[in-house]
C-alpha cells in the first residue's frame, strides 16, 4: 500500500443475509484515507455507511458476510488479521471509533471514570496513576472539567456525553478515528461546538479521520475528501472542494441541491429527488440510481457503471457524467 495512505479499502462488499435473499449493503466500494486528512463518508439512510464502519471494526452482526475486498492498514489486511490480536492491538489503540448512537453506549450504571479506565486497561498494561494521567489529558482536550469523571451518564447533557465518547476514542492516541454520525442526535448549536472540537483535535494531533454523516453541509466545513454513497455503491469520490463546486454524478448534484441553504431562503425553491431509495435485496438492473435519474439512458438500465477518474483525484460512477467515458 502507498505510504501516503493510512487506510486503503478496495473492492469491499458486505452483504446481509435476510429471508428474502442477500441484501447488498456495501457493494464493491473502494477508497483511500490519505494520512492526516479527513474523509467524509456521506449518504442517505441505508446507503451502507455504518456497514462500512462496522466492517472496518469487525463488529458486524451475525447475518453479515464480507463477500470480498480488503482493508489495508500498515500493509496488513484488517479483515484477515487474528480477531483477538485485532481487538487488543488495533481497535481503539490504532484505529478508534465513535459509533453511531454512541451517547447510548455509555453504561448507565458506571461512572465516566470507571468506563474510561476500563477502556485503557483492555489495551495497555499501565498503572492506575498513569491511566488517570491519560484520562485527565483527554478530558482537557475535549474541554470538560475533571468533575464529570465521577458522574453517571444520566447526569450529563447530550453534548457532554458526546464529548466523553470523543475523549474515550482519543484516549490511546490512535492513528485513525472513525466517527459514525457523531452529531446526529444533537442540537444545531451543540453540533457546531462538537464539530469545531473534532476539527481542532484533528489539526492538533494529526490523526486521519473518517467522518460519517448524512448531512453533507456539515462535511463542507470538516472534510478534505468526500465519498458519496448511494444504495451501497460509491457513486462519487473527490476532494470536498471539487465535489461541492463541480458535482458530477446526477445523484450528488441533486443531493446538494436538496440541502437547504439558509442563505438562499428567499428563493423558496425546494428541490428533491423524486422516487424512493432502492430495495437493496432486489436492486434495479443496471445503475442503482437509474429509476430516479433524469439523465438515465438505455445503457443505464443495462449495466452498472464503474468508478472512473474524470479529473485528477475526482472519480465518478456514471455513464453520462461530464467527461465520463461512454461505453455505448
Amino acid at each position: 500500500m502507498s505510504s501516503l495512505n493510512s487506510l486503503e479499502i478496495s473492492s469491499l462488499s458486505t452483504y446481509y443475509t435476510t429471508k428474502r435473499g442477500y441484501l447488498k449493503a456495501v457493494d464493491k466500494v473502494s477508497f483511500n484515507l490519505p494520512k492526516g486528512s479527513v474523509l467524509g463518508l456521506a449518504g442517505e439512510s441505508g446507503s451502507g455507511k455504518s456497514t462500512i464502519v462496522n466492517t472496518i471494526f469487525r463488529v458486524l452482526p451475525k447475518n453479515a458476510i464480507v463477500k470480498e475486498g480488503s482493508i489495508m492498514f500498515n500493509n496488513e489486511d484488517l479483515l484477515k488479521m487474528n480477531l483477538n490480536f485485532f481487538r487488543k492491538e488495533i481497535s481503539w489503540k490504532k484505529i478508534s471509533w465513535i459509533p453511531q448512537g454512541s451517547m447510548s453506549i455509555l453504561d448507565p450504571v458506571y461512572t465516566v471514570k470507571s468506563q474510561m479506565i476500563e477502556t485503557i486497561n483492555a489495551h495497555e498494561d499501565i498503572s492506575r496513576a498513569e491511566a488517570m494521567e491519560i484520562i485527565y489529558k483527554s478530558l482537557k482536550a475535549v474541554n470538560l472539567p475533571d468533575d464529570v469523571l465521577n458522574k453517571y451518564p444520566h447526569q450529563l447533557s447530550g453534548g457532554q456525553k458526546q464529548r466523553i465518547v470523543i475523549a474515550s476514542a482519543l484516549l490511546l492516541d490512535p492513528e485513525i478515528v472513525v466517527a459514525d454520525e457523531p452529531t446526529t442526535a444533537l442540537d444545531v448549536v451543540v453540533q457546531a461546538e462538537i464539530v469545531k472540537l473534532i476539527k481542532e483535535l484533528q489539526k492538533q494531533r494529526g490523526f486521519s479521520m473518517i467522518f460519517v454523516t448524512h448531512d453533507l453541509s456539515l462535511l463542507a466545513g470538516v472534510s478534505n475528501y468526500l465519498a458519496i454513497l448511494y444504495g451501497g455503491k460509491l457513486v462519487e469520490l473527490g476532494t470536498t472542494e471539487d465535489i461541492f463546486k463541480d458535482p458530477l454524478h446526477p445523484y450528488t448534484q441533486m443531493f446538494l441541491k436538496a440541502i437547504p441553504d439558509i442563505r438562499k431562503w428567499k428563493e423558496r425553491k425546494l428541490y428533491y429527488i423524486p422516487g424512493e431509495l432502492p430495495d437493496l435485496i432486489s436492486p434495479p438492473k443496471g445503475c442503482i440510481f437509474n429509476p430516479r435519474c433524469p439523465l438515465a439512458g438505455g445503457i443505464c438500465k443495462e449495466s452498472s457503471p464503474g468508478l472512473e477518474e474524470v479529473s485528477k483525484g475526482h472519480l465518478v460512477a456514471c455513464y453520462f457524467a461530464r467527461g465520463g467515458k461512454r461505453n455505448d
Partner: peptide
C-alpha cells in the same frame, strides 16, 4: 450562525 452552510471551508461561528 450555528447552521452548517454547504460550502467548503465555511467557518461556523459559535
Amino acid at each position: 450562525s450555528a447552521i452548517p452552510i454547504p460550502e467548503p471551508n465555511h467557518e461556523t461561528e459559535i
